[in-house]
Nucleic acid binder design. Structure first.
Lengths: 347, 347
DNA sequence: TTGTAGGCGTTATCAC
DNA sequence: GTGATAACGCCTACAA
């Protein structure tokens, strides 16, 4: 910059004003500086600027795994909203590992991100609260944490799941199963921190829906511990092979659904004749398979966008109470649910 | 930091050495400093450090759209390799817009990223060369740029496509169509910069395969301008409705395939009885639809990982000639290709 | 090993 | 509007 100033015949202060767009500079001086900068191939060092201003114009984004269509879309939403406001996005994956989440937050804080968007995994969320308290706002994406005062953007997983079960009950099903994507590892944590809220809420919704229909022992048809399509395939196969197999299945996300569809096919059953299926998330393929899959569609990209917007509000100083914002899900009826044909259904 | 030093009863220099892990500090001094830092909730400012050292330990990643499974996996690969080496990832989307790519690169350069991984879109790549020349190494991901000396990690799209066509020819098909994901917008650019290399190479491979089989006017069955599943659905519908419709279809990526499958179904045709299908990219759903889809599988995550590794080598000073690294594709035979049953096939 | 002093590339302050 | 000068938070001599 000193060189640019010299070439333009002004002081570094004036050059800085022209280049940084602050203070006031005469038009002639500005054009001279800009010309000199261009000629010398000058590039501003935003890092140095950030050290002074205390703002990096960067937000940190921490998710479990981008390579999951839901998060990919959410990341896209965050990214778009951030860019529109002149912010960049520093990305980190946790793979649902609390240690990695914590260290990711540490690193991002050390990089002086202006705010953090986190899809929190299980375990103690103390690092998130501390970040917020120490002046870096935090917005939770897709998952809430009980007893923690942080802005949260998500959908009503409980209600959506309850309704999905009700829908299956209305079709006459009584033996309704659920396969979820949670992992067993998280079970070491204290009760409130086990697994992630989406998983818990969806299971609760499932159980409530079952209870409202007076179904007996719904837990009998509940399978957790299915982190990958492979595992959920096995869980589904297990259900199908059991005594009094379910006539309907609720998959907690699209990857679980993928495994479930494979398992059902391999078991020689067909959807929806032998078993009906409802899944969370409107993955692209659910409209293409035979039959097409009835799903609960989440506005993944909009969730990311809203999270970014809320964060930017906090960054610009908004001080209201933390709030939980629920975006609507859409129940998309397709062809994977049929009336229950099993006459032992009273069982 | 000054406060930490004071509390620990040492100079800022010693505190800096203890906190930054450089120089030499006596064990006692270190523990005292660390204790003071913890007590005061001190967090190092990596930005200030970067200003001094000239290294930000950050790499910039520029892709067309994370919300595309291929790039999502590639981003994942880059992210993993970067993290393992102590680097963070600054992410940007371009939506195949050359202006956005250029401005993304500008911003990342101003943020002093140590290197850049770019899946370049169409148009003039001068900004990438300039970045490289001015000392920020650049690695191209998934797409090459002719006449530009930059490290590149990709697959052999031409050869994979040629073989796919050969495979269809072997099954007896003569009327083989291709639908690609390119957009028309890019056609305003000079010849070498039109569209992206993956699209061009796949088309070239298709044409070569057709030529080798002595097929007449393969261009007749070539449809570009299909950026979204919707558009490729329309393009496919158009092909099917034509005079002498194709008996086999080659989809240039999994999203095109998605549209194609829908179009084929809506036209009342079945795969592979009426029309065979081969697609690029082993998207998760291709193994679940009926019939399962024969695909050319790309190691998306490994491509990202390799790109990051190559970039890190450059960052640490590797000076060899830029090289183009080709990762192998895998042709996965599934159930979407059948022998050609059409006896007008000599047409 | 430790402290002092200077510098990295900006922005902020304050006279002029 | 402009220029000198301090300041940001850290690292790197160099001397002690």
């Amino acid at each position: 910059m000193a060189e640019v100033a010299r070439t333009a015949g002004v002081s570094t202060a004036t050059a800085g004003r022209a280049l940084g767009g602050y203070g006031s500079v005469s038009p002639e001086a500005r054009t001279r500086v800009l010309a000199a900068a261009k000629e010398l191939g000058y590039r501003r060092n935003d890092l140095a600027r950030a050290v002074i201003t205390g703002r990096s114009d960067t937000i940190g984004l921490v998710v479990a795994d981008i390579d999951n269509p839901f998060f990919a879309a959410a990341v896209r939403g965050v990214s778009d909203a951030a860019r529109a406001a002149g912010y960049e996005v520093l990305l980190a994956n946790t793979d649902e590992d609390p240690h990695r989440e914590r260290s990711a937050v540490d690193v991002l804080l050390a990089r002086r991100v202006d705010g953090l968007i986190v899809a929190p995994t299980w375990g103690d969320p103390e690092h998130l609260q501390r970040a917020q308290r120490s002046g870096t706002p935090v917005v939770l994406l897709d998952r809430r944490i009980e007893g923690v005062d942080l802005d949260t953007v998500m959908v009503d997983n409980f209600e959506a799941s309850r309704r999905a079960v009700a829908y299956l009950v209305d079709a006459g099903h009584r033996r309704i199963a659920m396969v979820t994507g949670g992992t067993r590892r998280s079970q070491v944590a204290p009760p409130g921190q086990r697994g992630v809220s989406t998983g818990r809420d969806r299971v609760e919704g499932f159980l409530r829906g079952a209870a409202e229909a007076g179904l007996q022992e719904p837990e009998r048809y509940l399978r957790t511990a299915a982190g990958t399509p492979d595992l959920s395939q096995r869980a589904t196969a297990d259900l199908l092979a059991g005594h009094e197999p379910p006539t309907a299945l609720f998959a907690s996300d699209s990857r679980v659904a993928l495994g479930a569809v494979k398992a059902i096919r391999q078991a020689g059953r067909t959807i929806p004749d032998h078993i009906s299926l409802v899944a969370f998330d409107d993955a692209d393929w659910t409209g293409v398979v035979t039959p097409t899959i009835t799903v609960i569609s989440q506005p993944a990209q909009a969730l990311g966008r809203r999270a970014a917007e809320m964060l930017l509000e906090r960054i610009s100083g908004a001080q209201e109470e933390p709030r939980e914002e629920l975006l609507p899900t859409v129940f998309i009826e397709r062809d994977s649910v049929a009336p229950c044909a099993d006459d032992t259904r009273g069982a």
